[in-house]
Design a protein around this nucleic acid. Structure first.
Lengths: 196, 196
DNA sequence: CATAAAAAATACTAAGTAGTATTATTTACA
DNA sequence: TGTAAATAATACTACTTAGTATTTTTTATG
């Protein structure tokens, strides 16, 4: 990686961390540069303004992470219900980056900025739609494989399980304990089994 | 209501609105006073600082709203599954205050501030626990009434449906359309019926 | 009505904010 | 190696922020 590219990457990664823990609006450029070896000159060389940087965080860090952690494992699943359950378990209990206290980075960012910034929101829609499609396809495959009842509506189920994930992330932040994740996962398993 | 009390109330209500639409950290005292007829002197007469005001918003506006809109209708329900479904439908599609674009005020506030302010978080825990207990009791009643299967775990179900609500509020913000609410509600109905 | 306390108005401060202008350094490559 | 372009450093600006200090007005009550 070229040095300039590394500087840019440093900015995006630090910004991602701070946004994850504090929120986008509460994260200042001064703080990003104070906690890296990047100067203000370098920051504004790489990004026209704070918004452009925020957009790059979504598209280059968040989207990549979402794709890697939230879609790959169910992309060609032969056991849709099982693999969807495992995906959520992995995300909630095993993912090394996410912390109960701070929830899910994408969730946080979307909740904060979706109504406030159209450019951000377009990127959010892309992320969410991508995830939704992956889950929907997975459910459809489960039907084709005869593992899921014929009358199950894949689109509905996809929205339903996505919602559960988003919501339990909020409860986790409030209780600051994985206990509620565990409880949620038990019921998720029951629900998914009820689709058989 | 005494005049001073009205001033205090004006501050809290305007603050609630702005926090709902912009977030707590992004809402400045200057903006609150600029959009009311309240001066800075009056503001700091009623509240020691911004945090104390935020706490009052949670305890006096949000908690009240939560209690009124989210627990009363299921408090002594004789048809738990039906009434829980109706509660969510009412909250998502009929509640006059909440807007798809801005989601649920309590959700937003919790997601933003739970990890950042302990005093706020204690108040959030009270709110969430109250709601959780109400739903759990409702499910238990459903079991006692023979409307819900014996093997259903009320605590798990309560977390599960609460999660769904929190999450679909986020999706609603991103898509800025009630369509996903409608889709979600259909699957919620299926899920609740599966508990019979 | 007098007056003390409650409530509110005004003007200010110090720190933080995004962003700019200018200068300096590093890099690529002719 | 020389030099132009790319990258980065420094110092600054105009504005916003939470909060304070001080004064003024309003209210309650003897």
């Amino acid at each position: 990686m070229k040095k300039a590219e590394a500087t840019r990457r440093t900015i995006l990664e630090k910004a991602f961390d701070l946004i994850y823990m504090q929120g986008y609006q509460a994260t200042s450029i001064d703080e990003i540069i104070a906690t890296t070896k990047v100067t203000k000159g370098a920051f504004f060389y790489h990004f026209k303004n704070k918004e452009e940087m925020g957009l790059a965080v979504i598209k280059e860090i968040m989207y990549e992470g979402m794709y890697k952690n939230m879609t790959q494992s169910i992309a060609d699943s032969k056991n849709p219900l099982k693999d969807i359950y495992n995906l959520f378990k992995e995300l909630l209990l095993l993912n090394p980056y996410m912390q109960v206290k701070y929830g899910c980075p994408a969730n946080n960012f979307m909740q904060e900025m979706a109504p406030l910034n159209d450019a951000f929101n377009i990127a959010f829609i892309n992320m969410v739609t991508e995830w939704h499609n992956m889950i929907e396809q997975c459910i459809k495959r489960g039907k084709a494989l005869g593992q899921i009842r014929k009358d199950v509506n894949p689109k509905q189920v996809a929205y339903f399980v996505m919602s559960g994930y988003g919501g339990i992330r909020i409860l986790g932040k409030v209780y600051n304990s994985t206990d509620c994740y565990v409880t949620y996962l038990k019921e998720l398993k029951s629900y998914l089994n009820s689709l058989q």
